[in-house]
Simulated scan of single mutants.
Amino acid sequence: MRKPISYLGLFMLAGFACSQPQDKNQTMEADSTASKFTHAPLVEHMYTADPSAHVFEGKIFIYPSHDIETDVAQDDMGSHFDMKDYHVFSMEKPGAPVIDHGVALKLEDVPWAGRQLWAPDAAEKAGKYYLYFPAKDKQDIFKIGVAVSDRPEGPFKAEPEPITGTFSMDPSAFQDGEEYYLLWGGIWGGQLQWYEDQKLVEGRKGPTDGIPAPDQKALMPYIAKLGSSMTELAEKPQEILILDESGEPIKAGDNSRRFFEAAWMHKYNGKYYLSYSTGDTHFIAYAIGDTPYGPFTYQGNVLDPVEGWTNHHSIVEFEGKWYLFYHDTQLSGDTPLRNIKMAELTYLPDGKIETVKPMK
């Protein structure tokens, strides 16, 4: 049954102090550089994170991960993020009730998966909907799977095997005209550092095994065009280069700018924007390029650090305005139990994005 679960106020210039839970209708005056956003969690009856938002059928659909309380101990590989299913949410427009459409896919319904249904994303083509998701296989190695539905809210039926040629986690789908692309990758718990030339290296087990030296090129996300079926890759994955202002690849020791996880791509005024989490420095950074394959040049931050250790986002246009979806830990104060939020984005005349400052 579809149930409205939360209401948002109108977007206004606001900020909030994340250190204390606040009433969802409360607003605070922010300075003139602050972005418009609401500071109420979109979903309050369960914990949600990693929101991937898309406009399907004229509405905003959100595909988050589903945080749960667990006895699994916390570690640097993220074992305590022990998600077991996905819910899909929708809203008619910003400010409208958020609808929980129920369970869209469960871990036990993915034949190849062993544990940890982490951050997903979705795409639509010719009336079919595709849910891309990471999970650890029976050997505890992250792979990326896909599930298919006739409806944006699901339920989704998983393909029997992961997508050949994929590895690591955090898939995101990007549509550019008639072409569709899949991006992915994440270090530490995402296991990207365990691969060389897209092949798993035996003996790498820890979160930093395989991480380049600080003065070496950082690990980067991957991209590949999707085939016509949307369930397989049409080409060998390519690394997406993120460059500094001098045209050199961002270094592994440049923790405030280098890629960690959560790659997302959108297009604005003919340019491609690659945004991503810097992980242990807690920024959502972004870079701009001329093609989906890059290279991309670092520009700054979309989002400053939030309450909680992790940072993961999506960016979507709806009725001529742009919105950032993200998460923090306002409801629980506990990193593995997060809640999704949204903010209105502002583009500056030069194409840069005004940084959202959620901790103000």
Rank of each mutant, 00 (worst) to 15 (best):
I250R: 03
A285V: 10
Y272G: 04
I242S: 00
R258N: 13
Y276Q: 06
P237C: 08
R258S: 11
A234F: 06
I240G: 01
P221V: 08
D280Y: 12
I242A: 02
Y272D: 05
L233S: 10
P295H: 01
L226H: 00
S275I: 01
G294D: 01
T278D: 05
N255D: 11
S228N: 15
E245M: 02
G227N: 05
D280K: 13
Y293E: 10
G247M: 05
F296P: 03
Y222V: 02
K267L: 11
E245T: 10
A252M: 11
S229P: 00
I240V: 12
F296V: 04
I250S: 03
S228V: 13
M220E: 04
P221D: 07
N255K: 13
E239C: 06
F260S: 15
E261R: 13
M220A: 09
Y286W: 10
H266C: 12
F283R: 11
Y286S: 13
E248D: 05
F260E: 10
K217C: 04
G294F: 00
S256D: 13
S277V: 06
K217W: 05
E232N: 14
A285G: 09
K225L: 12
I284S: 13
G289W: 07
P292R: 14
P214C: 15
P212A: 09
G253L: 05
S228T: 15
T231E: 01
E232W: 02
M265V: 15
A213F: 11
L274G: 06
S277L: 05
A287H: 08
S277F: 08
L219S: 12
P249K: 00
K225W: 11
Y276G: 04
I250F: 05
E245Y: 01
S228L: 14
G227S: 09
R258F: 08
Y286G: 09
L219R: 12
T231V: 00
Y268L: 03
E239P: 02
A263T: 05
